[in-house]
Design a binder for these strands. Structure first.
Lengths: 236, 236
DNA sequence: ACTGAATGTTGACGCTGACAACTTCATATT
DNA sequence: AATATGAAGTTGTCAGCGTCAACATTCAGT
């Protein structure tokens, strides 16, 4: 499945028998090689040197573009967020009603995770959020775009009808968005991890789950507590 | 926080100045050392050799108990599931009403993840579920216990009232349990990953989210499709 | 034409996971 | 009691890894 050399196709490469000393676009080629390995092996345990080999470059060339391995992985993760955002944006473009858009978007989200479990692990598995380093800037920026798109469609497609988007309702809306996101995120990971299914069709599964959640949000919106309210004193 | 030697306390060790040639309980000591490192560094990138050093043992001793590093990590993950199950069981023992038990259990689940993000990553982050290996047996066994406990309490505490536990309702119930689990799982990961909060109190957050979900489940239960039904043909 | 910054290369270092061969010791059988 | 057996721990070794330092090549601006 897929040859292991000839990765360098970003540059026309005028003379095939001798690569020019400078690669031209090594950074991107390396990130793409990483994505390729992730896709092929579904494992995060590849080496920087292997990437260099795939790019037909010395083992130290990547260090001119990434300070260390973590920074490379951050770039790959960011690329994953870009792919996810693009995919969701594409999906929702095919539908007109906000409701349909919402479901299409959530399905795209889940599919992205199920089809690329290793990449999804990298994005959300907490490899990169060590104790010292919070989420790196490059990743945060990419993740933020994803989040904004997600929130917008959720509000338009499911929550907006029940709760108009006024500033008074901000907490409620934030809670609803968080609930949706958590649900889909958790389901994606359970599916990607093989803890659920894959006997069930994930798309339909997601739809019905989100449907249930939206019903709940409409019935009685969760109120994000200002800090005091704690759960189970609900009439039993 | 915590000395780095004197780990060996499982065996009485008659002469403190000279360890007996055979350690006595090395396997457990190594797993505990791994948990300790995870807690201290919140990173999965520790070495087998470091564990051996902590256990005051040669760098190859662990190989008498684990075939390779992966098998060691599997054992650690399994231990994580045991801890989680124990913690949840403890929590629910403090409450009588199924509803209270449900919320207590979910809070325990979330807290476990938020307090030990690296361990939670190991358990659910897909490190161990490569392409070749599905979830290892030891981990599956431990995870299954967790799942059973979770499902039982969810059914008793939230779903049982709306949907009696008959065989006809099996799909509905499974869907409701999956929805709950996904929601809490996703929320836990978002919190552990720092993508949400921690400005909000996670316990209260979870309660309100689950509350919303349960309302939804009660209002109109999601029907897990037999394979055909696909989402968004809901009246818009 | 020259200089400096990017970019790519070579060589080295310590650490790691893993394997093989050896040592110690507890136990089971004779 | 003597001894064979094998589990548990040790030492030695190996290739591969991430990273650093020093050097080579090319491009861009003067």
């Amino acid at each position: 499945m897929g040859g292991n050399s000839e990765v360098c196709r970003a540059m026309p490469r005028p003379q095939p028998h001798e690569r020019p000393y400078h690669h031209g676009d090594l950074r991107r080629v390396i990130v793409e090689a990483a994505l390729e390995i992730l896709r092929e092996t579904q494992s995060l345990e590849f080496s920087l040197r292997e990437l260099a080999r795939r790019a037909d470059v010395s083992h130290n060339a990547p260090y001119k573009h990434f300070a260390d391995k973590r920074e490379l992985l951050e770039a790959v993760s960011a690329e994953g967020f870009e792919m996810l955002t693009k995919r969701m944006a594409n999906e929702i473009a095919s539908f007109r009603s906000p409701r349909e858009q919402l479901f299409a978007l959530l399905r795209a989200y889940i599919d992205h995770g199920v089809e690329n479990p290793a990449l999804y692990s990298l994005m959300f598995g907490g490899y990169l959020t060590g104790p010292n380093h919070g989420r790196p800037a490059i990743e945060l920026a990419a993740a933020e775009k994803t989040k904004v798109l997600l929130a917008g469609v959720i509000i338009a497609g499911g929550v907006g009808r029940a709760v108009p988007h006024t500033s008074r309702n901000e907490r409620k809306i934030a809670g609803a968005v968080l609930a949706c996101w958590s649900l889909v995120h958790g389901l994606t990971l359970l599916l990607a991890d093989g803890l659920v299914g894959p006997n069930e069709k994930s798309g339909a599964l997601a739809d019905s789950l989100v449907q249930g959640l939206l019903n709940g949000l409409a019935a009685e919106l969760p109120v994000l507590p200002p800090g005091t309210w704690v759960g189970p004193q609900i009439p039993d």
